[in-house]
Design a protein around this nucleic acid. Structure first.
Length: 952
RNA sequence: GGGCGUAUAGCUCAGUGGUAGAGCACUACGUUGACAUCGUAGGGGUCACAAGUUCGAACCUUGUUACGCCCA
């Protein structure tokens, strides 16, 4: 009963994975045989997540590194876990509640809602973990961590052994607060009107959309007029007219209601006559039109639009800066849903007060914030509806100059996809600038290496322009901020309410309702998962961790913050190397998105081609800094590669060289010295492959490692060695048969070992077909033999000579249309000693593979024979009956042309005295050798061509 | 507008100063006892463009063009 013809991935993968898990093969320290540790922290997927190609790519690379280190005997930990993903998870649960019981979050208490979230997490939160298992990820799942572990209400399902992440997060908050690195302030934040929470700068996506730019007249107060003069570059007057207004352009007319000023550049002569005067916002009830001052500031660009801009400090980042500099009030127009405010005094009252302020009355921030300057008829409207109404009203009054269609950049919230609204609110901030210094230095001085190197440049650029990090979110699902307030608004920051009350001297306290940005907690991932603040054995052993493999897109979100926070909290770097990879795109290079419909689900791919094929594809395309364009054709190709390996093993098994049928094994390769050149040769090739794979992986060149394995396994083992082995295995020489079986058995084992990190399932399945395994392949010992030990230079030369001869004969046969099955005689014209030895040692396999039935000596190439030049000699194929003279001439001429081109290049270089002088000796010597060899070969071809001419 | 990149075979991409590579696709032939998810043999390149450095440039420098991503 032999092996099947193909590997049944569907049937085998879960079985094998279960066996690994059951054996505890992934546990921290499993298979450790040395003191060195190796640790990777998984970028924690969201509990709401489902595996996409980005995860598949990211985790394939991690798994390759982890398996490689584990097999090499490092004390290895791949720390898994999940992120509580504040907004995403809250949204998911709110949706579920709405569908199931038509309830809104606010219909229940915060505690009850949180309980629902935990319940949801217990039910659905492990989806992605099971998917990672399908991919073959060898994480230590018993240590699965969770960024909300230990928070109130945690029932501990799915992360039973996670350290109390919550405690760590609160401790860090309190510490940073006490060091003055966390502060609270009223600033303009990015506000998500859908989720009604602040978000950080990084969570805003600027997208260019089709918009409009409206140009309006802001009439001067009291009907004043001025002479408006426009000049061209040379100072010639191009327009001169009397105006009673100033022209203002805006993409957001609804915010006009909150204008606090109109600003022009101080050097702008056009408006010099009216600077300091008041103008009227052309909207709202006529009798209460608000007046605002015309001021100067460097912000307006005189060449853009009219050169005058309206300043709405509470609803635009740039305007906010201008307003702050010029003491312009920040009038807030919208509520948390970005509807026009519907609170406070009637418009007439508010507008009257605003007028006093514009004319110089004193004011404070609290008063300004309470003033609702939305005219009564717009109150409660959605901002976009308000925009339409404002535009229509101004137009009706004849104050609209024009409206341009324009591409505008609009900020969207990356989660809710609604237009972000800048909003003036109280929020908590981390003083990121203070944390940035040490984080920058860690990369600058090389303690942390970021790959590709361009990532470092991007990192520095961001670090040098870093802004305070807004960390409070107006959500319920998350780490609630550990700050309490007394009746007078004093803050008490402490890790527990008891502690806060002690600080407050027993006063009644209310806790800040906000929660922390999810990235604040994931920023503590490296230490938090290892049990910090307790000094656990794992923390001592695995921290700092080694490699961080993650997507380029979260360099700022996560990587930079981890570096900043770990350095601040424990004074050490979180990892040594950051490997940033690109997003996975479709084969045309487009982002995969639901709207484009080009999403490839990795689970479908695994279903169709097996996890190994997907993994190998990702590895082979993971060039440093490259874009990964995934094509199913490629995955299919690597599925075929798996089949090829499978069949190589099958062949070996049929020949008693693999599996249960194995008769010969090699205990110590360095003490094994086979006789046959082919056996000696392939052993050297294995050593080459091992060195190449190790060197590539050490340099994070996954593609080089994968491609080296592919070329070795298919191109050397299958294409040549297995073919060479056929005559050897059929030999009458029992000793020869035995050594070939032993060699083949060893070679296939090495193929399985070296490929295991890339294709763990198929290789483990094959490995276990041989019953005498001491350990599973996942724990097999990674080899350390070298070419210095195992490569036999003479065998190498001989086999390469034989391969070249076989290829030359095959090529000649094919071009002469010799039937593939036909065995033909060959003549040896001349051959040096090395060639002679190579022939004698490998006669059987050369004859078989070139389909030669006999070799005879001949003094010269007979007329009508085909010349086959090789290194150190010439062979000929007497095909007088079959030969097509023209075809042969064409064949020879083609080779000759190619050679002559090469010869031309080589001699050109060698004739140049400067080349001989300046180039390294080795390069010159190589060129000379090449020239000599090429010239000899060309001479043979010329002679052959001459003989053909004789025939005619 | 600023920053970071990319441009090499029909496609997707490697390429580390010494004269061009892989996979897929394509063409022809082929079931010879591992494998047709295969084998054998082929065809295919002005390395975006221009200038410079160098004995020598796909590779280093500068500029141009086109495209991508990030930030405003």
């Amino acid at each position: 009963m032999g092996m099947e013809k193909t590997f049944d991935a569907k049937q085998a993968e879960t079985r094998i994975y279960d066996a690994w898990e059951k054996a505890g093969a992934f546990r921290a320290g499993a298979n450790a045989s040395r003191d060195e540790t190796y640790c990777i922290m998984i970028p924690p997927p969201n509990v709401t997540g489902a595996l996409h190609m980005g995860h598949a790519f990211n985790n394939t690379l991690q798994d390759i590194l982890v398996r490689w280190h584990r097999m090499r005997g490092f004390d290895t930990l791949w720390q898994p876990g999940q992120d509580h993903a504040g907004i995403a998870t809250q949204l998911q649960v709110e949706k579920m509640l709405a569908e199931e019981s038509n309830l809104r979050r606010t219909d229940m208490s915060r505690e009850d809602f949180i309980a629902k979230v935990w319940e949801w997490k217990g039910k659905y939160g492990s989806t992605i973990i099971n998917q990672l298992k399908r991919l073959g990820a060898s994480c230590d799942w018993e240590r699965n961590a969770f960024t909300m572990a230990g928070a109130p209400g945690d029932p501990r399902t799915g992360h039973e052994n996670s350290p109390d992440f919550h405690d760590a997060v609160l401790k860090v908050f309190v510490d940073l607060y006490n060091k003055g690195l966390i502060f609270r302030g009223k600033r303009l934040v990015n506000w998500d009107p859908h989720f009604e929470t602040a978000i950080s700068d990084l969570e805003v996506e600027n997208i260019e959309i089709d918009g409009h730019m409206w140009h309006f007249k802001y009439p001067l107060a009291g009907g004043a007029e001025y002479e408006y003069v426009e000049k061209d570059e040379d100072g010639n007057v191009t327009l001169r007219e009397m105006r009673n207004y100033i022209s203002i352009a805006t993409t957001r007319p609804e915010t006009m209601l909150g204008d606090g000023a109109v600003a022009v550049h101080p050097s702008d002569e056009r408006y010099a006559p009216i600077v300091g005067k008041l103008c009227e916002i052309p909207v709202g009830p006529k009798e209460h039109r608000r007046l605002i001052p015309i001021i100067t500031d460097d912000y307006p660009d005189p060449d853009f639009g009219s050169g005058a801009v309206k300043i709405t400090g509470a609803h635009d980042q740039n305007d906010y800066g201008v307003a702050k500099r010029n003491h312009i009030p920040l009038y807030r127009l919208m509520d948390t849903r970005a509807h026009m405010r519907d609170d406070g005094a009637p418009y007439a009252e508010a507008a009257a007060r605003a007028r006093e302020i514009a004319e110089g009355a004193d004011w404070d921030e609290a008063e300004i914030d309470s003033l609702n300057l939305v005219p009564d008829e717009y109150r409660g409207l959605d901002r976009f509806e308000a925009r339409k109404r404002v535009v229509a009203d101004i137009d009706a009054e004849g104050l609209m100059i024009m409206v341009e269609d324009k591409k505008i950049m609009q900020p969207f919230c990356d989660r809710s996809k609604v237009v972000m609204e800048p909003m003036l609110t109280d929020q908590w901030y981390v003083d990121a600038e203070k944390l940035a210094g040490p984080a920058r230095d860690a990369v600058k001085d090389g303690r942390i290496k970021i790959m590709p190197q361009s990532g470092e440049k991007v990192y520095f650029h961001w670090m040098e322009n870093i802004e305070p990090w807004c960390i409070s979110r107006q959500l319920w699902w998350g780490h609630q901020i550990p700050v309490w307030y007394d009746d007078e608004g004093n803050e008490y920051c402490a890790a527990s309410e008891d502690e806060a009350r002690r600080l407050a001297g027993g006063k009644a306290l209310t806790r800040d309702p906000d929660v922390l940005d999810t990235w604040f907690s994931s920023g503590l991932w490296p230490i938090g998962t290892l049990g910090w603040p307790d000094n656990t054995p794992e923390l001592q052993k695995y921290f700092p961790t080694d490699d961080l493999i993650t997507g380029q897109d979260i360099l700022f979100f996560w990587v930079a913050r981890m570096i900043m926070m770990q350095l601040e909290v424990v004074g050490d770097i979180p990892f040594h190397t950051v490997y940033l990879h690109q997003l996975v795109r479709d084969e045309k290079g487009q982002k995969m998105s639901k709207t484009l419909g080009n999403v490839i689900d990795p689970l479908d791919t695994i279903e169709d081609y097996g996890a190994d094929a997907l993994r190998f594809s990702m590895a082979s395309m993971a060039a440093i800094g490259g874009v990964l364009k995934l094509s199913m054709e490629r995955v299919k190709g690597y599925r075929n590669f798996g089949t090829k390996i499978w069949n190589a093993a099958r062949f070996a098994e049929m020949n008693a060289a693999f599996g249960a049928a194995t008769t010969e094994r090699i205990a110590d390769i360095s003490a094994f010295h086979p006789k046959a050149t082919a056996n000696r040769w392939i052993i050297g090739e294995v050593a080459r492959a091992r060195e190449e794979v190790d060197a590539s992986l050490a340099a994070y060149r996954f593609n080089d490692a994968a491609n080296a394995l592919y070329a070795f396994t298919w191109g050397k083992v299958c294409d040549w060695y297995l073919e060479f082995s056929k005559p050897l295995l059929n030999s009458d020489d029992a000793q020869l048969v035995a050594e070939t079986r032993a060699t083949m058995n060893w070679v296939l084992d090495q193929v399985l070992i070296l490929l295991h990190p890339f294709m763990p399932f198929l290789t483990e399945e094959l490995w276990q077909k041989q019953p005498d395994r001491a350990k599973m392949l996942i724990h097999a010992d990674w080899p350390d033999y070298t070419t210095a030990e195992l490569l036999d230079a003479q065998a190498d030369r001989e086999m390469n000579w034989a391969i070249a001869l076989i290829e030359a004969v095959r090529s000649a046969r094919m071009q002469m249309h010799v039937p593939a099955g036909l065995k033909i005689p060959m003549l040896q014209i001349d051959l040096d000693a090395a060639g002679q030895r190579a022939w004698t040692n490998n006669e059987a396999l050369i004859k078989r593979m070139a389909r030669i039935d006999s070799l005879a000596q001949a003094p010269e190439v007979p007329k009508g024979a085909i010349t086959v030049p090789v290194e150190g000699g010439t062979f000929a194929l007497p095909l007088a009956d079959i030969i097509d003279v023209d075809a042969e001439k064409e064949r020879l001429q083609k080779s000759l042309t190619r050679l002559e081109k090469e010869i031309g290049g080589l001699s050109g270089r060698l004739d140049n005295p400067k080349f001989v002088e300046s180039a390294p000796e080795a390069v010159v010597a190589e060129a000379r050798d090449n020239l000599k060899a090429r010239t000899e070969e060309a001479d043979k071809l010329k002679a052959a061509l001459a003989r053909l001419d004789d025939l005619l």
